[in-house]
Amino acid sequence: MENTLRKIDIKNDDRVEILNVPFVKTPKDQFIDTLLNHIKRKEKKFVITANPEIVMQTFKDPSFKQIVKQSSYVTPDGIGIVIASKMLNKPIPERITGFETMMGLLLHAEKKDHSVYFIGAKDTTMKKAVNNVHARFPGLRVAGFRDGYFSSDESSKICDEIKQLQPDMVFVGLGSPRQEKWIYENFKHFKKGIFMGVGGSFDVLSGEVKRAPRLWRKLNLEWMYRLITQPWRFKRMLELPKFLFKVFKEKAEAGTR
Rank of each mutant, 00 (worst) to 15 (best):
residue 4 T to C: 09
residue 6 R to Q: 09
residue 8 I to E: 15
residue 11 K to E: 15
residue 11 K to P: 02
residue 13 D to E: 14
residue 14 D to V: 05
residue 15 R to Q: 13
residue 16 V to E: 08
residue 21 V to L: 08
residue 22 P to K: 07
residue 23 F to T: 02
residue 25 K to E: 06
residue 26 T to R: 00
residue 33 D to K: 11
residue 34 T to V: 11
residue 35 L to I: 00
residue 39 I to F: 03
residue 40 K to Q: 15
residue 41 R to Q: 14
residue 43 E to H: 06
residue 52 P to L: 08
residue 61 D to W: 07
residue 65 K to D: 09
residue 66 Q to D: 10
residue 66 Q to Y: 14
residue 68 V to L: 02
residue 68 V to S: 05
residue 70 Q to K: 13
residue 71 S to C: 12
residue 74 V to N: 06
residue 75 T to I: 10
residue 79 I to N: 04
residue 79 I to D: 05
residue 81 I to K: 03
residue 83 I to Q: 04
residue 83 I to R: 04
residue 85 S to G: 10
residue 85 S to P: 03
residue 90 K to R: 10
residue 98 G to P: 02
residue 98 G to C: 06
residue 101 T to K: 04
residue 102 M to Y: 00
residue 106 L to P: 05
residue 106 L to H: 04
residue 107 L to Y: 09
residue 108 H to I: 10
residue 111 K to W: 12
residue 111 K to D: 15
residue 112 K to R: 15
residue 120 G to L: 07
residue 121 A to H: 02
residue 123 D to S: 15
residue 127 K to A: 13
residue 128 K to W: 08
residue 132 N to R: 13
residue 135 A to T: 06
residue 137 F to Y: 13
residue 139 G to S: 11
residue 143 A to V: 14
residue 148 G to T: 14
residue 150 F to K: 05
residue 155 S to E: 15
residue 164 Q to F: 13
residue 166 Q to K: 05
residue 166 Q to H: 13
residue 169 M to H: 11
residue 173 G to P: 03
residue 174 L to K: 13
residue 176 S to G: 08
residue 178 R to A: 06
residue 180 E to F: 03
residue 180 E to R: 01
residue 181 K to L: 15
residue 183 I to A: 00
residue 183 I to T: 02
residue 187 F to E: 12
residue 187 F to R: 01
residue 190 F to G: 07
residue 193 G to N: 04
residue 194 I to N: 01
residue 195 F to D: 04
residue 196 M to L: 05
residue 196 M to F: 05
residue 197 G to H: 03
residue 199 G to W: 01
residue 200 G to Q: 01
residue 204 V to T: 05
residue 205 L to V: 08
residue 207 G to R: 15
residue 207 G to K: 09
residue 208 E to M: 15
residue 211 R to V: 09
residue 211 R to P: 06
residue 212 A to G: 04
residue 214 R to Y: 15
residue 217 R to I: 07
residue 218 K to G: 15
residue 218 K to P: 08
residue 221 L to W: 02
residue 221 L to Y: 01
residue 222 E to Y: 03
residue 224 M to K: 07
residue 226 R to K: 06
residue 227 L to A: 09
residue 228 I to F: 12
residue 231 P to M: 04
residue 232 W to V: 11
residue 233 R to W: 03
residue 233 R to D: 06
residue 233 R to F: 09
residue 239 E to N: 14
residue 241 P to E: 02
residue 242 K to Y: 12
residue 243 F to M: 05
residue 244 L to P: 10
residue 246 K to H: 14
residue 248 F to A: 09
residue 251 K to A: 11
